[in-house]
């Protein structure tokens, strides 16, 4: 099912990173194969966001390798990494509040290659999130939480994406909205785009994830198929809150 397509899309090896003196990641290794959806589970503050920010270049790695396709992305600026097709939908959305929904989406297609197909890309995102079309003239800061998340994901999809990284898409949303959003993420997955998703809760990963990594204290504690991990009662308690 997965990993048939040869070399991984993304390969992270022995990654160390952090903020100033504080080291958050202490040797993280993982990979994403073509077409795969990978979920990294981990409690808050154990380095999930730092992992994505380091991969996308917003934080400099102190050691380790990141290879995206055939490119070594270490030392590249975040805009260059994005230009390679590694799209990071950040935690907290980071929308441009004083710009309209349409303008936010257009910014997603900032790179020349994506901008050239602006119309088609916009149509595709609107098809996935029809609500954004309704709201396209509105300022981003006037959107509801769920709409903001859709815009954030939609903006990511506007780019020339070869891998989509999603940072806790469920964060702060009502359960109904999360369900809808995860349906959309399922659709994105079905289109064949590889996804690297980090979450705190394991509730919605069954049926979505091809493989799961557990990130604890800045290192990968376990790796496996979702079914295996969900069969472990100790893990269930940590990540599903089931006593």
């Amino acid at each position: 099912m997965s990993g048939i397509g040869g070399r991984p899309v993304l390969e992270v090896a022995g990654l160390h990173s952090g903020y100033g003196e504080t080291e958050v990641l202490r040797g993280v290794s993982l990979h994403v194969n073509p077409g795969e959806t990978i979920v990294v589970l981990g409690p808050n503050g154990h380095g999930k966001t730092t992992l994505l920010r380091t991969i996308s270049g917003l934080i400099r790695a102190t050691a380790g390798d990141v290879a995206f396709g055939s490119r070594d992305t270490r030392g590249l600026a975040p805009d260059e990494i994005a230009g390679l097709g590694l799209i990071h939908v950040p935690q907290g959305d980071l929308l441009y509040g004083e710009m309209t929904v349409l303008e936010n989406l257009k910014m997603g297609a900032y790179r020349a290659a994506a901008w050239a197909e602006l119309g088609e890309r916009l149509e595709r995102v609107y098809l996935l999130f029809p609500r954004l079309r309704e709201r396209q003239k509105q300022l981003a800061r006037t959107l509801s939480g769920g709409e903001r998340r859709m815009l954030s994901v939609g903006r990511g999809l506007m780019g020339n994406s070869a891998l989509l990284m999603l940072d806790e898409p469920s964060l702060g949303l009502a359960p109904v909205v999360i369900d809808e959003l995860y349906d959309r993420i399922g659709e994105i997955r079905a289109s064949g785009l590889p996804i690297l998703l980090v979450e705190e809760s394991a509730t919605r990963i069954e049926g979505l994830a091809d493989r799961v990594y557990l990130l604890e204290n800045g290192t990968i504690a376990r790796e496996g198929a979702p079914a295996d991990l969900l069969a472990d009662p100790a893990l269930l308690q940590t990540y599903l809150g089931i006593a």
Binding site: S56, D79, E80, A82, Y96, M107, Y110, R155
Partner: peptide, 12 residues
């Protein structure tokens, strides 16, 4: 409005 977001959208 948001420097990090601009970076992630591929703007230098």
């Amino acid at each position: 409005q948001n420097r990090d977001a601009a970076y992630l959208n591929g703007a230098s």
